[in-house]
Amino acid sequence: MGTYILKRLLATIPILIGISALVFFSLKLVPGDPLTAIVGDGVISQEQAAQLRAQYGLDDPLHVQYFRFVERAIQGDLGRSLQFKRPVVDEIRSQLPATLQLTLAAMVVALTVGLSLGIVAALRPGTWLDSGAMALALAGVSFPSFWVGLNLLLIFSLALGWLPATGTEGFERLIMPAGTLGFGAAAIIARLTRSSLLEVLRQQFITTARAKGLGFARVVLRHALRNAIIPVVTIVGLQFGNLLAGAVVVETVFSRQGIGRLLVTAILGRDFPLVQGVVLFVACVYVGVNLLVDISYALIDPRIRYA
């Protein structure tokens, strides 16, 4: 197991190098000047533009800029944000807790809603309960999160005045964003739980368990669900990545702190060092989560072993 984890960790190095190069050079293909990050919406003279370009090293050839970035990144320095004039690492660190809070809360929503709907639907296949649960799941997959988010805002902030529309601090500011983000993920989890559970419930060992007199709840939760959950765990891992991506939209709609909003601001402002840093960071998270998912298989299913 140790060797396996080590191998996987080593394999991330070329992935990260590839991602950083891809991001760096694709950013340069996008129209727009990183001077936008420095001057914002100001109108400046050509003379001043030239001075600023020279001062920030934006005149250097691309490969020089890239290797300067790599050299620093290896030492743990992701550079300074052109826009916010402070280290990229500080920017990420300041936004991370809010995004983690949001994704975890959304995951709780997704799992609670998704598993419940999936189990209910699987236990009563073909009934109105099943159709209702699956219709809800379909809605979750189909409605874009910005639409859901704006509607929640209209209902709960503007019409009812129950929840604050913007901001980060406090539980009441987490409810709508986490609900919005979790809703989409819940849908996928519900559908997968249903189909996986239906399949397991048809197997002989379930009949055996029932025959030896085990209670219904025990059979479903301990025997059936444990077997049905493996594909769900995979999808939960992938969903975690999707949640991070979804945070980009949800954090913007609700004006929450977070990595997603940081990335949007960085991209629109052509704040290249910040975009680089955030993308590299998110890539690391993806790789890390995938590794955790693979390891968790071994824990859930004793037949799976890594060497």
Binding site: L153, P164, A165, T166, T252, V253, S255
Partner: peptide, 18 residues
């Protein structure tokens, strides 16, 4: 001071008295 880039969110927050 808060920065709210989304017009809809800024309006909602204003109209709800936030």
């Amino acid at each position: 001071f808060v920065g709210i880039s989304e017009n809809g969110a800024r309006l909602t927050a204003f109209e709800s008295g936030e």
